[in-house]
Structures are given as structure tokens and as C-alpha cells.
Write a protein that binds this DNA or RNA. Structure first.
Lengths: 339, 339
DNA sequence: AAGTCCATTCAAAGCGATTTCAATTTTGGA
DNA sequence: TCCAAAATTGAAATCGCTTTGAATGGACTT
């Protein structure tokens, strides 16, 4: 069903039908009613490509996902938050997957040059993110999930990683822990650097020396976390607490602790960062897991909102949101062992 | 940079430039070279909307993701497999997220009516999938990840869930287990029904009676798996082995076993289905996990291929692939306890 | 009854590509 | 050297929508 056919069917011009459907004021109410009823009945919907060409808007936002290991389970959570909001505006989400950094930059150029999307979402930035600079050069609007030190203003939403880790670390220090291991994300990523800052700040506030052997920078998989925790537990004196960068990491650490014959929550403590996955609940772990918590799905949903504001003309410099990180104490974090 | 500008810049007509770039044979080789060099240099790429309107192809495939719990971590794996292949053909992946079944059907209608995508990917089908029927009614091509009993032929790729579970169950029976619990997916989903078939077949082949108390049909989250396994372990006689529907499920069962003071691999055995997540490795669990294994990422990649074939005109009735499921034995499955 | 104003409606011009059909230039053979 | 055929290029139509600018018709004023 084309606009033309619908117009003919109604004995009206395409102009009037188009206006009626798009809510223009200069169309008689009776006509509008007649038109929208016919459209509904005949199942008419404007052809997306034609509409996009005519309006110059792509009605789509893009997201580039990097190779699997980076992708992880976070993305589907984020996506479902994002998608819910976008759907209401009939805006598509176009996802592109790439294997390398090289490919990723090329993907942005491609998307920009072909005007396939109106805006993009950038995630997992580094401190000086090349992709952000590129997008600014290409003049394609974007919202950053995270933060970066850019030369120009950037729209972003981030969680307070520094604050979260400072509180978590301080809490462990309060419990008497002095050797606290940090299983952090890959070096260079802003969130990892921010977490490190919070960790360091808490340590130095109590005058506890930083031991580089207690810090790891790896991807958030259970496997590498397992190995890293295992080797850290062989240190003497061994760490009495772990700060795990993600729930996957926490699972790995958990296994290492158990394999070492120790008990989580008494022999060793752990606080993990929880992005809130519906299928992996800190409250239902055994023992229940203390976490620094922030819903990545909510972030997705909110970023959709910010994106719409950005497209609506709100200045980039006014789009900044820093979300607090909750510290939720459960059974996995307890007092440091006495000896 | 528009085609028009590029043409003017070159002193050629749009026609010739378009042809040169699209590899038509009737353009002089020297001209083609000149054109493609200029295009590269000036960074010209056809406007996606215009191209789509002109060709009538959307150059996009759609995927509808249902609310979070169904979504899970599987999707990002699948997507990255899919995306890798699609990118090479400059085909976009448009993802839509919906909260309910109702919304989902509406989403398909919307996508179809607005001709936003050339084809769709359908996943997690039920035995008689309403969505598949709808897509056929709408005459929009699709590849099904899984199987369904449709009235008309459907293009699909599925794994041999029945065979996989039959082998896993038989193996546990060989080890002397007689009370084998099955933590299966939601009732009605084809894969869950197929797994049940395999389980039943193996039991009845050995003359072992089926006990409905040992079967659960739930979503694959660690939480519900934990609860279910916990209550099953309170039965007398208790199950001596578990078949877990996913790695998330396995984690929950694992916790329940440990909480009950038992040891996995000796007191209780488990074989889990592994969709192969890079961040959750059966080989690195402790004890290592026996699995029925099939890479969901590879499935995504292959489905992209099938989709391209479908769009290329290959008949639906020739697009069927049933992948075998590997049984990988590790430490979590051992002989049944003697008493 | 004539002239103004609104309220409606419509014809036609884009949007930026592809593609049909026609025009022009080359090439090759007589 | 000339002409038909082949090779190459171009003008214009088309895809399905939005939007500008013009046209129509009735209500209202005077």
C-alpha cells in the first residue's frame, strides 16, 4: 500500500493524506479522521526509505560492537534498555559488529558517509578516545556511555566509578582488611582508570601502601579472573579481600577461593561490581554477594532519552550525567581474618 | 559529497559515475579508474536512503529481541556471529526490543509495512510459532534459528537438541545414575520440547521410569535454577545427576549442590548445555564442566550466510541445517554414588 | 453583490540514488 | 574513405515520500 494508492482510494491528493497522517493543522478534522481510519484499515505505513530520503533524517541510531570478548553480556542488557525508549519514536537501532579497532573506525566512517544513522552511541571509551574524536570530526552527534578527555565537549552519561570504588575499598579497610586485591578492567579504559583512582584514594586516605602485585588489568571473563585470583592467593601475605570488576570476574574469583580451600565471606571477602543482569543475581549467590551496583539497562534507557534530546537540538555541553553507584553489603564481605 | 557533485567534479554524468562505481561492464576501464579514485579521495559513499529507495532493497535484516529475561547473554554472542558476515555485504542489522508477545507481533507488522528490512531472523521459536506464521503471511523472508511446526516450509538452522540430550542422558545412565533431573527451558519452546524428547527416549531405552518431580521448565537464570535444584535435592531418594539447560542454570545448580554440602562430580553429577560464551568457560570451571556444546556464535555467522542465500533466491525448502551437538565429558560427571 | 479572508486542498518540485532508452563516439571491415 | 556495429556516455524517468507555492471555495464584511 503506497501513499499514492491510499490517496486515490480516498479521492484525495497525496499532499492532504500526508498532512493528515503527520498531524498538520491545515487539514479538516473530518478529513483527517477519514484518512487515518483508511490508513489503519489498509495497513498503510510510509515506506521507510522514501521517508528518510524526503526528510533527510535516517531515523536510526548506530552502535558498533567490538569483537566478542569486549562485547560480553553487558551489551544485551544495555540494548534492551535503549531499545525500549527508541521504539516509541520509531527510531531504529542499527548494530554493526567489528573485529578490530581499525575496522571500527572504518565502520564509523562508513556509517557517516552513507548517512545511515542520525547519531551514534559510543561505549567503553578510553581516556583519550580516538573514536570520539573521529565522530566529532565527522560531525555526527553521539552520546558517550562513559567519559573521555576530549578536546571538544561531548555528551555523556557515566557512573561514578571512582566514588563507588572508593567507598567499597574504604569499607573493606574499615573491616580491617589491609591487603585488598583489585581485579580491574583493561588498562586505558576510562572506567578502569577511574576505579583505580577510587581504590588508590581510599588506600592512601588510610595510609595503606599500594602493592602492584594486588592489581590486575584484564578483560572481565571468569577464566582470567580465576587465574589471576589463584595466583594472588598464593602470595604471602595473601590478600584478604577482592574487588571484582564484574559479576563474571566475581565468579572466577569465587572459584579460586573455593579451590584454595577457603570460604568466601569469612576467610576472604569480596565486593564485586554488578551491572545488574536478570540472570545472575547477587542476592541469590551463595554466599550472597556484596556489590557496587548500577543498572546498565537503566543507563541504556536513559541514554536513549539523551540521544533524543541531542537530536532535538539540546546543546552537547548540557548533556552530562554522572550516576551514583550504590554499595550493597551482603554476605561476601566480612571482617578481615585475625591472624 | 553527493553523486551529483562527484559527477560534476569529474565532468561526467551521474549515470556514468553510478555505473562505474557499481561495476557495470559498459564503462571504459580508464573512466572507471578515474571515478573510483575520485570517489575514494573525496570519500563519496552513496546515501543509504536514496540507494534503498532506488533499488527497492532495504539492505537490512531485522531482529526482534524480547524482554530481558529471554534475551540473556546468548544474544550478544549470536549477534556478533551474525554481524561479522553481514558487514561484508554492507547489510545493516536492525534490532528492535519489545516487552511482550503482543508488542512483538506489532513490531513485525511495522517492520514489514514500512519495508525497513529485507528479511528477518527469528529465534527461540515455540512448536507452533505465531510469529513465523505472521512473517509468512506478511511475505517477509526469514531464517529461523530453531524449528517450528509450520504449515508452510520455513528456512531454518537448528542444533540437534534431541540427539544431544539423548546422548547426555544415556551417558549418565551408563554411569549408573537412575535419578536424573532435567532443568529444561520454558515449556512450549521447541528446543525445550526437543530436549525433553531426547531425555525421555534415553530413559525409556533403559527402562527407567520418568519422574515428573525431576523435571523443571523455567527460564535459564542462575536464580531459578538454584531454587529448583535446591528443592530437588531435598527429595528422597534425591537425584544423583543434573542436566542443566544452560551455563547460567549450571551455576545455579552448582551453588545448590555446594550449599547442600555435596561435591559436584562425586556426590552429584552434572552435564550442562554450553552455548560457548567467551567469558564463561566450561574448561575453566572447578570442577570442569561436562557439556553438550554448540557455538551460538557460529550459528549466527552461518545464519547470516543462509539469509544471504535466501535473499539471493535460494528456495526456502532447501535451507535447512541441523547441527550436531557435541558431548564433552569433563570432571562434573562421574559414576553414580554407590549407596 | 462584490471583495476579503480563511480554511482546505492540490499540483509539482525536490530528496539522491538507479536504470531505461536514446545519443554519441569508436572501432573495424569493406 | 565510409558505414554499420559496438562501445561508451548522457538525459530523463523513477522509487515513495515531504513540502512549497498556488488554487479553490465558502464565510464574512461592507
Amino acid at each position: 500500500m503506497r501513499l499514492k494508492e491510499l490517496a486515490e482510494h480516498l479521492g484525495l491528493s497525496q499532499t492532504t493524506v500526508s498532512r493528515a497522517l503527520n498531524g498538520y493543522p491545515e487539514v479538516k478534522e473530518a478529513t483527517r479522521l477519514r484518512v487515518s481510519e483508511a490508513a489503519l484499515e489498509l495497513g498503510y505505513r510510509p515506506n521507510a526509505s522514501a521517508l528518510r530520503l524526503a526528510t533527510g533524517r535516517a531515523s536510526a541510531v548506530g552502535m558498533v560492537l567490538r569483537g566478542a570478548d569486549e562485547l560480553g553480556p553487558h551489551m544485551s542488557e544495555f540494548l534492551s534498555g535503549l531499545g525500549g525508549r527508541m521504539a516509541t519514536q520509531d527510531i531504529d537501532i542499527v548494530v554493526t559488529t567489528v573485529a578490530s579497532q581499525q575496522e571500527e573506525l572504518a565502520a564509523y566512517r562508513r556509517l557517516a558517509a552513507s548517512q545511515r544513522v542520525d547519531a551514534m552511541i559510543l561505549h567503553s571509551p578510553t581516556l583519550n578516545d580516538e573514536r570520539a574524536e573521529l565522530l566529532m570530526d565527522l560531525k555526527i552527534p553521539f552520546v558517550l556511555h562513559g567519559r573521555t578527555n576530549a578536546t571538544r565537549p561531548v555528551a555523556w552519561l557515566d557512573i561514578d566509578n571512582t566514588g563507588g570504588l572508593e567507598r567499597a575499598t574504604s569499607h573493606l579497610l574499615d573491616l580491617g582488611h589491609r591487603r585488598i586485591a583489585l581485579l580491574n578492567g583493561v588498562k586505558g579504559r576510562t572506567f578502569a582508570e577511574h576505579r583505580e583512582l577510587g581504590y588508590m584514594a581510599a588506600l592512601s586516605a588510610r595510609g595503606v601502601a599500594f602493592d602492584p602485585a594486588l592489581m590486575g588489568n584484564t578483560a572481565f571473563t571468569d577464566e582470567v579472573a580465576f587465574r589471576m585470583a589463584q595466583s594472588m592467593l598464593e602470595l604471602r601475605p595473601r590478600p584478604t579481600a577482592f574487588l571484582a570488576g564484574s559479576m563474571m570476574t566475581a565468579l572466577g574469583v569465587f572459584r579460586a577461593i573455593r579451590q584454595a580451600g577457603m570460604t568466601l565471606g569469612t576467610d576472604v571477602s569480596m565486593i564485586a561490581h554488578d551491572d545488574v543482569f536478570p540472570y545472575l543475581n547477587a542476592d541469590n549467590m551463595y554466599p550472597t554477594m556484596s556489590t557496587t551496583r548500577s543498572s546498565i539497562r537503566q543507563a541504556g534507557s536513559r541514554i536513549a532519552e539523551l540521544l533524543l534530546q541531542l537530536l532535538g537540538g539540546k546543546p552537547v555541553s548540557e548533556i552530562h550525567e554522572l550516576w551514583p553507584v550504590e554499595l550493597v553489603l551482603r554476605e561476601s564481605s566480612g571482617p578481615a581474618p585475625l591472624f
